[in-house]
Amino acid sequence: MTSFALIVRHQTQPGKRDEVRKVWEKHMAPAVAANPGHTAYFYCFDNADPDSICAFQQYASAEASQEFLKTDSYAAYLEEVEPLLAGPPQVTALTPVWTKEA
């Protein structure tokens, strides 16, 4: 299997970035930590835009990324976070070809 990565950029409603983070921490942080399909995950605030969040996600495979989208945790996250977002995320799919291990 080839690893698979995503860069996901969210634009929040004005002034709602901290609220979005709280929802992410409630639902996604524990789900990602417990998910063996995630091999790396970085949840980041954009320094140039106070209403933007960018996440880098690396999975064991493209299939693992699709399976995660079917979890109850992800559904609960979407339900709670969508009203806080300005629209759907911008998603870029990537194939990692080199990584530095910690």
Results as ranks from 00 to 15, higher is better:
Pro36Ile: 01
Pro96Met: 03
Glu79His: 12
Lys22Thr: 13
Ser61Glu: 04
Cys54Ala: 15
Ile53Asn: 01
Thr12Met: 03
Gln13Thr: 13
Ala29Trp: 04
Pro14Ser: 04
Glu25Arg: 14
Thr95Asn: 10
Gly15Ile: 01
Asp46Cys: 02
Ser73Arg: 00
Ala102Tyr: 08
Val97Trp: 12
Tyr41Trp: 07
Thr39Ser: 11
Ile7Ser: 12
Val91Met: 00
Ala93Pro: 00
Pro88Thr: 15
Phe42Thr: 10
Pro36Gly: 04
Leu94Glu: 01
Pro36Gln: 03
Lys70Gln: 13
Ser52Gln: 12
Thr71Gly: 06
Glu79Asn: 14
Thr99Ser: 09
Glu80Gln: 10
Glu79Phe: 06
Leu94Phe: 04
Ile7Ala: 13
Thr95Cys: 05
Leu85Ile: 00
Ala33Gln: 10
His38Leu: 09
Lys26His: 08
Cys44Gln: 10
Pro30Leu: 01
Ile53His: 02
Ala60Met: 11
Tyr74Asn: 11
Arg21Ala: 13
Thr99Asn: 02
Ser61Ala: 02
Gly87Phe: 04
His27Trp: 03
Ala55Ile: 09
Glu101Gln: 12
Asp72Pro: 10
Asp72Cys: 00
Pro50Cys: 02
Ala64Tyr: 02
Leu6Asp: 06
Arg9Leu: 15
Tyr43Met: 15
Thr2Ser: 15
Thr99Val: 06
Ala64Lys: 01
Thr71Leu: 08
Asp49Pro: 06
Asp46Gly: 01
Pro14Met: 00
Ala60Asp: 13
Val97Gly: 12
Glu79Pro: 05
Ile7Val: 13
Gln66Asp: 05
Glu63Met: 12
Gly87Thr: 06
Ala86Gly: 00
Pro89Trp: 02
Gln90Gly: 11
His38Glu: 15
Ala48Met: 14
Phe68Cys: 00
Ala93Trp: 03
Ser73Thr: 03
Ala93Leu: 08
Pro50Tyr: 03
Asp49Met: 05
Ala55Ser: 14
Asn35Ala: 11
Lys16Thr: 14
Tyr43Phe: 15
Ala75Gln: 10
Gly15His: 04
Ala31Glu: 04
Gln57Gly: 12
Ala64Trp: 05
Ala60Arg: 09
His38Ala: 11
Gln90Cys: 13
Gln13Leu: 08
Val91Gln: 00
Lys100Pro: 07
Ala48Cys: 06
Glu82Tyr: 07
Gln66Asn: 11
Glu79Arg: 09
Arg17Tyr: 05
Val97Leu: 06
Ala31Phe: 01
Leu85Asn: 03
Glu101Leu: 06
Ala62Val: 10
Glu67Asp: 07
Ser65Phe: 10
